[in-house]
């Protein structure tokens, strides 16, 4: 049994300790907003926050999360989170949407640390998040928009 906190709720999961956080969230906790796409930390679709830091859930074993706090797209309820989501909606960022949970989690982590990111800051913070629909231009604009809103 591994005990952790997910989106503010304490949970215990009975899984092999090498199981990546991603599959515990998806297959055991029913939190399917976090997506699988590469499984090798190349795409960022599976980005969640572990004690506030963005991590790739597909390569992080659940044992690492023992006693820690995970937050996922479903639990995003911070001021920054809401600002990012509403900027995303306003600028119509999503296309297929599959990468967007991960994009949003990375963007929220960026804005939590850097209130006014430059284009270069955005490029580097979002470098690990792929979008095959190439929504990048709108993601960039939406991050600026959210920053403006938060200022």
């Amino acid at each position: 049994m591994i005990a952790l906190t997910v989106n503010g709720k304490k949970v215990q999961v009975d899984v092999a300790p090498d199981t990546p956080i991603l599959w515990v969230l998806r297959d055991h906790l029913g939190l399917t907003g976090t997506k699988y796409s590469c499984g090798i930390a190349q795409c960022g679709s599976c980005t969640v926050h572990l004690d506030g830091e963005p991590i790739r859930a597909c390569v992080t074993p659940i044992s690492v999360a023992q006693g820690k706090k995970i937050s996922t797209i479903e639990g995003l309820n911070t001021k920054v989170g809401r600002a990012v989501q509403s900027a995303w909606e306003k600028l119509e960022v999503v296309q297929c949407g599959y990468c967007q949970s991960g994009q949003i989690m990375s963007a929220v982590a960026l804005l939590a640390k850097n209130k006014k990111p430059s284009d270069a800051d955005i490029d580097s913070a979002m470098h690990g998040n792929l979008c095959r629909c190439a929504t990048y231009q709108r993601i960039r604009a939406a991050i600026h928009e959210a920053a403006k809103h938060l200022a």
């Binding site: 998806r26 029913g30 939190l31 399917t32 907003g33 976090t34 997506k35 699988y36 996922t72 797209i73 479903e74 995003l76 989501q85 995303w88 909606e89 119509e92 960022v93 999503v94 949407g97 599959y98 967007q100 949970s101 949003i104």
Partner: peptide
């Protein structure tokens, strides 16, 4: 006409095949 699929795709509730249980 704002996208119909924005909301579910920014809050993780959109259902893809991979999410079916």
């Amino acid at each position: 006409a704002p996208r119909q699929d924005s909301k579910p795709k920014i809050n993780g509730s959109a259902q893809y095949t991979s999410d079916v249980t």
